[in-house]
Amino acid sequence: MKKTDTKSTPINTLKLTLPSLSVNEGIARTVTAAFCAYLGPTATDIADIKCAVSEAVTNCIVHAYKNTVGMIYITAEAFSSSTVKITIRDKGCGIADVKQARVPLFTTDAESERSGLGFTVMESFMDKLYVRSKIGRGTVVTMIKRLGNAATE
């Protein structure tokens, strides 16, 4: 894969703030996917992005703001290399052990039929995944993906 330019100035930016209501899972992934559309993604890219965003937003609703409603801050930045950087931030409870949370099938909520594969999906469907979290302060998930045929050059 060619070097991405996500440290330079983005050519376009989307900012979306939504309350942590489950109905917003669909809105978050649809709007983010629409933002990525002009970068020339493949159908698979769009499906991957939708899924990754859905996982991150669901984590905010199910875990970060468990039993409460808070705001979810989504930023998507487009770069000239057809790369997109998506940041999903919450001010929720935070993750005690990020390394453990990223282990496939790990879940703190087995009763609600959570599969424990949220981070695994994000990691597999995007090129890069960074998770920063602080207990009582919140979590920032950053995902980067190069889109279209450029991704395989």
């Binding site: 499906a47 939708k50 899924c51 996982e55 039929e113 959570r114 599969s115 594969l117 999906v121």
Partner: peptide, 13 residues
């Protein structure tokens, strides 16, 4: 038309 890991939970359940 769309499924994320919540669908896995549904199927495994």
């Amino acid at each position: 038309e769309f499924m994320d890991s919540s669908g896995l939970g549904l199927i495994m359940g």
